[in-house]
């Protein structure tokens, strides 16, 4: 059971400002059903340019609902410039804090606010778009977003980043990238999570290379495929040519080719050698229905 503050419970059981403003000045929508939480924020300004009313509709857990409720309270009476300064930390603090694993709810609140302000400033036309490259494909989190939560909340570990913006919490395939972003921003403060991640260190004997390939498949590639019901098996290594077979969902997946190049080959090049090329085993390529389920 999560330990919620009384304030969170109060706003969850009796949320304020539920609903949608008709003819709003700004609308912000973030999240989706698939992600497990989503928030639609609407606000209206008075003649002095201050937020007169704000309402929300939220799909999500108790802390997502409480965060939305409290955010709409906070907004009332603020100018747009003042509202734009609200951070996810402000929202969480207002609630007397949130469990660490639930901090992403406060980030969702801030994102919705930002989207609504952007929508207002562009005269109601602009829908929120993802800026920067997507790092976490499971939850659609961009590099910009990850950098921002790291800076605003002074995060140092991948686990924290996952708690704050969900990135890395799905298949886990992007955790290495998140770590790099952490290192870039926090320097030495960044906690190393994947201490055992294999690194290429000079010339390898054939046996070392094969072991490193197997290790990379086990630790870096399989978890990502597993998350989608797939699997991979190392069949053979001929020099720099690595032969693998896709199993499970991967075997029938339209995107298997993409996975091969962008995940399998990329990871093996990153962790083993730039010379690596990957091919699919002939038998497995030809018999899609003979695979494991």
């Amino acid at each position: 059971m999560w330990e919620y503050t009384d304030k969170v419970k109060e706003h969850f059981f009796n949320p304020h400002n539920v609903g949608e403003i008709e003819h709003p000045d700004g609308v912000g929508e973030v999240g989706s059903l698939a992600c497990g939480d989503a928030l639609r924020l609407t606000f209206k300004l008075d003649e002095n340019g201050k937020i007169k009313d704000a309402k929300f509709k939220t799909f999500g857990c108790a802390s997502a609902i409480a965060t939305s409720s409290v955010l709409t309270d906070m907004l009332k009476g603020l100018t747009i410039d003042e509202a734009a300064k609200i951070t996810n930390k402000d929202i969480a603090d207002y609630l007397g804090g949130l469990p660490e694993q639930k901090m992403h709810c406060s980030v969702m609140g801030r994102e919705a606010l930002e989207a609504a302000i952007e929508n207002y400033r562009s005269g109601g036309r602009k829908k929120r778009e993802l800026e920067g490259t997507v790092v976490c494909t499971c939850f659609g989190v961009t590099e910009n977003e990850i950098e921002r939560v790291i800076r605003e909340n002074n995060l140092t570990t991948v686990e924290q980043v996952t708690n704050y913006c969900k990135a890395g919490g799905g298949c886990g395939g992007c955790q290495g990238e998140i770590e790099k972003i952490l290192e870039k921003i926090q320097g030495d403060k960044a906690g190393k999570v994947l201490e055992t991640a294999p690194r290429w260190a000079g010339r390898l004997t054939n046996i070392q290379k094969i072991q490193l390939i197997q290790q990379t498949i086990n630790e870096q590639i399989r978890p990502a495929l597993r998350a989608h019901g797939g699997n991979i098996e190392l069949i053979d290594v001929e020099g720099d040519k690595v032969i693998v077979a896709f199993r499970g969902m991967c075997a029938q997946c339209m995107l298997a080719e993409f996975t091969m190049k962008d995940v399998v080959e990329a990871k093996l090049r990153e962790f083993v050698s730039d010379e690596i090329s990957v091919e699919e085993d002939e038998d497995s390529a030809q018999q899609p229905h003979n695979h494991r389920a």
């Binding site: 059981f13 497990g36 857990c61 108790a62």
Partner: peptide, 23 residues
């Protein structure tokens, strides 16, 4: 609607259940 929110509402009435939701 989301499972954790339902569980907390049930909990208020003393009803214990569980959910397959991510949260």
């Amino acid at each position: 609607i989301e499972g954790e929110a339902i569980l907390l509402m049930l909990d208020k009435y003393g009803i214990c259940a569980s959910s397959g939701s991510a949260c």
